[in-house]
Structure formats: C-alpha cells, structure tokens
C-alpha cells in the first residue's frame, strides 16, 4: 500500500505524520473551543431570556 520510498522512508513518513498531527491538533483545538464557546453563549443567552 505504501509506495516504495527507498532509504528515505523514515524522513518522508515522519514529515507527513508530524505535519498531519499538527494540523489535526490545530483543527481539533479550534473546533473544541468553538463548540465550548458556543455552548457557553447559549447558556448565558438562555439565562437572560429566563430572567427577562
């Protein structure tokens, strides 16, 4: 499945793994924070509506 990378296999796979890990971290962190902030805001808005 993985193409023949010759003697540089480690370098290439390492670079891809590292970069993709970093990107996934960034995307995951952004999405996690987006969800958390959105939930918080909804809670506060709901509280405001209840309290008039």
């Amino acid at each position: 499945m993985i193409p023949d990378l010759g003697k540089y296999a480690q370098a290439v796979i390492g670079a891809y793994a590292l970069s993709i890990a970093l990107l996934v971290l960034l995307v995951g962190w952004s999405m996690w924070r987006a969800a958390r902030v959105r939930r918080q805001l909804n809670e506060i808005e709901a509280r405001r509506v209840r309290n008039g």
Partner: peptide, 19 residues
C-alpha cells in the same frame, strides 16, 4: 480555520460582554 476561529472570538467577546 480563520472563519471558524473568528466566529469563536466573536462569541467569546459577546460572552464577556454579557457577563
């Protein structure tokens, strides 16, 4: 990512204003 994060920042700003 920038759009997503900007949305988050706007909401965060609104939260702190409401609090």
């Amino acid at each position: 990512l920038v759009l997503l994060r900007t949305r988050t920042e706007i909401r965060a700003r609104r939260i702190s204003a409401l609090l």
